[in-house]
C-alpha cells in the first residue's frame, strides 16, 4: 500500500512515523512511501528507512520510495542509504 509521507517529517515526528511503519510492516508485504510533499529528510528519518529496509530484506518484504526529489536522493546517498 502507498503512504503519503507528511511534509513535516523530521525528528519531532519521527517516533510517530516509526510506530506507524512498524504496525504497517506487520500486515503489509509491500509498502510504498510517497515523498512528493517532502522537501528534505533529516537523519532520524533516514535511519528509520535504513533499518526498515534491512528488516524487509530479511522477511522478503519490500519498502519502496516514490517521488524522490533530487535533494532527497542526494541526502539518501550522503546518509548511506544506498550502500
Amino acid at each position: 500500500m502507498t503512504i503519503e509521507v507528511n511534509e513535516n517529517i523530521g525528528v519531532k515526528t519521527v517516533k510517530k512515523f516509526y510506530l506507524e511503519l512498524k504496525e504497517l510492516l506487520k500486515k503489509e508485504a509491500e509498502i510504498i512511501l510517497d515523498l512528493q510533499n517532502v522537501k528534505r529528510l533529516d537523519l532520524s528519518v533516514v535511519q528509520v528507512l535504513i533499518a526498515a529496509n534491512r528488516e524487509c530484506m530479511k522477511n522478503n518484504k519490500s519498502i519502496k520510495l516514490k517521488s524522490v526529489s533530487k535533494d532527497i536522493k542526494r541526502q539518501l546517498y550522503l546518509a548511506g542509504f544506498s550502500n
Binding site: K64, V68, K73, R74, L76, Y77, S82
Partner: peptide, 8 residues
C-alpha cells in the same frame, strides 16, 4: 528495494 532511479 528502491525502484526509483537514483542518480547523484
Amino acid at each position: 528495494a528502491i525502484n526509483s532511479e537514483v542518480i547523484a
